[in-house]
Nucleic acid binder design. Structure first.
Lengths: 233, 233
DNA sequence: AAGTGGTCTAGACCACCTT
DNA sequence: AGGTGGTCTAGACCACTTG
C-alpha cells in the first residue's frame, strides 16, 4: 500500500483548475468554501487559500469575502513580462552594447508628460534623448523626462558616458510602474536616428515610474524593427 | 500612549523596500535572514516570508535557499497586463461590438505556427481569420490556429456567429499562455481589412495557449491604429 | 448579523543549495 | 553537512461584504 503523500498547494491548485477544465466547476459557479475543500483534500485551509490566490492572480477565479469564490465567466488573459536594463539585454543577445547621448536639457513638461505622471501642473524636469546600440546598429531610441525634485542627483551624472536608464535602475528603485505598448510609423527624425526608412513600423514602450506617488521618470522607448516583448503567465 | 498595532506583511514589505531605497540595503547586499528580520520586527517568520515573496516577485530582490536574500543589482521592470475578451473590451469603451468571419479552413500548420506551439512536426489544425469591429470600424484582425486534437468541439461551432475568441475563452481555460508584442507595417491585404493605408504601423499581439503542454490555440491579433496595451506592477 | 476570505502566529519539517 | 528559504499545520482573530 502506498502511503498517502502530503498535498502541496500546487497540487491543490492543479486539481481545482482541472475541475474547472472538467466543468465540474463551470463558469460562473460558486466554488465550495476554502474550509470545505480543505476538508475534502485533507489539508489545512491555508493550503487551499494559497492555491486559490494563485488561480485568482491568474484571472481564472474571483474571490470576495462573504461572497465566496466564483469561476470567472469572462476570464482574461493575464501575463507578466520583464524589461531588463537595455545594456544587459543587448549583451545577453551576444551583441556589443553602445550608447550615445543625443540631447540633455532642463525644460517644462509638455502636457503628454503631465498626463503620464498624472500631475495637474507643468513642472521643470530634465529632458534627455539618447540612443542605445547593438553591434553599432540603433537598438532603442529613448526620450526621457526625469523629475529633478525626487531625483536631483541626476543633474550631476555625466550622461554622455552613462545612460540615464542604467543610472536610474541602479540608483532609484521605484515602487510603482506603468508600461504601455503601442506602434508608430517612424517620422523623419526618428528614421534618421534609427537608420530606418521614414514610415517603418516601430514598437514603442512607454514606461513611467513613481516612488510612493512621487514621479521619478517617464521614458518613451522607440525600438528597432523586429524588436518584440515576450510575456507569460 | 499608542498601542503598538500589529504589523501586516505589506508593512514589512514597505519597510524593507524603504531600506533598499535608503541604501540601508544597497544593491548586491545580502539581507538578514527572514528569521532575524522577524525578530527585529516582532512578527512571525511567515510574515517576513510573504513580504520577501512580493519583493522577489517584483524583481527587487533575489532569494536562494542557503544563499539567502540579496538586493538585485540589476533590477528589471516587471509588470502585468490583462487582455480581456475582445467583445467586452469594445463594449467597455462604450462602443458597439461587431464581428465578421473572413475565412475558416482546416490546413497544415506552417512553420511559424509550429514554432509558436513548440511542436516539431506539422499538424492539421483549424485556421480562422476574423475581424472584430468597434462602432462598425475595424478594431482587431485575428489570424488564429486551433488544435483540433485538444479542442475538437470547435469544429461544430458556428464561427460566422460567434468568434473563436469568445468561444475559446468561455469553453477552454488554459494552463499556460505566452504573449508577444511587436509592430508591423500593414500590407495590402491587412490595410484593406483594417481600413488603413498600406504601410501604417499597427501593434501586433501574438498569443499562444496550452493545457498542460498540449497546444490549444495561437492567435495573431493585428490591432487598429492607436491601440495600446497597458500594464503595471 | 453572519458568513467568507484574508492574515497572523508558532512550530515543525522539507528541499535545495552553497560551502 | 549545514544553513537558508519553502511549505504545511492548527488555531485564532480580523475585515469585508452581502443577505
Amino acid at each position: 500500500m502506498t502511503a498517502p503523500t502530503r498535498l502541496s498547494w500546487t497540487d491543490v491548485r492543479d486539481e481545482i483548475r482541472l475541475r474547472i477544465l472538467n466543468r465540474t466547476f463551470a463558469p460562473g459557479d460558486k466554488l465550495p468554501r476554502d474550509n470545505d475543500l480543505a476538508g475534502e483534500f485533507g489539508c489545512a485551509r491555508t493550503t487551499v487559500h494559497r492555491a486559490m490566490q494563485d488561480l485568482s492572480r491568474n484571472g481564472l477565479v474571483e474571490r470576495r469575502r462573504k461572497g465566496g469564490t466564483h469561476v470567472r465567466s469572462d476570464p482574461v488573459t493575464r501575463a507578466t513580462f520583464d524589461i531588463p536594463i537595455t545594456r544587459l539585454e543587448v549583451e545577453q543577445r551576444g551583441s556589443k552594447y553602445g550608447y550615445q547621448l543625443i540631447s540633455r536639457a532642463t525644460a517644462t513638461t509638455p502636457t503628454s508628460v503631465m498626463r503620464r505622471f498624472g500631475i495637474p501642473h507643468p513642472d521643470r524636469m530634465l529632458h534627455v534623448k539618447a540612443l542605445h546600440l547593438a553591434d553599432d546598429q540603433p537598438y532603442i531610441l529613448e526620450d526621457r523626462w526625469i523629475d529633478t525634485d525626487t531625483t536631483p542627483e541626476i543633474l550631476n551624472v555625466d550622461l554622455t558616458r552613462d545612460s540615464a536608464n542604467e543610472w536610474l535602475v541602479h540608483n532609484k528603485p521605484y515602487s510603482r510602474v506603468e508600461v504601455q505598448f503601442s506602434a508608430i510609423n517612424a517620422d523623419k527624425e526618428t528614421a534618421e536616428h534609427m537608420a530606418v526608412k521614414t514610415g517603418d513600423a516601430l514598437l514603442v514602450i512607454e514606461r513611467t515610474t513613481w516612488v510612493e506617488s512621487n514621479p521619478i521618470t517617464t521614458v518613451l522607448s522607440i525600438t528597432a524593427p523586429g524588436y518584440h516583448v515576450s510575456a507569460r503567465n
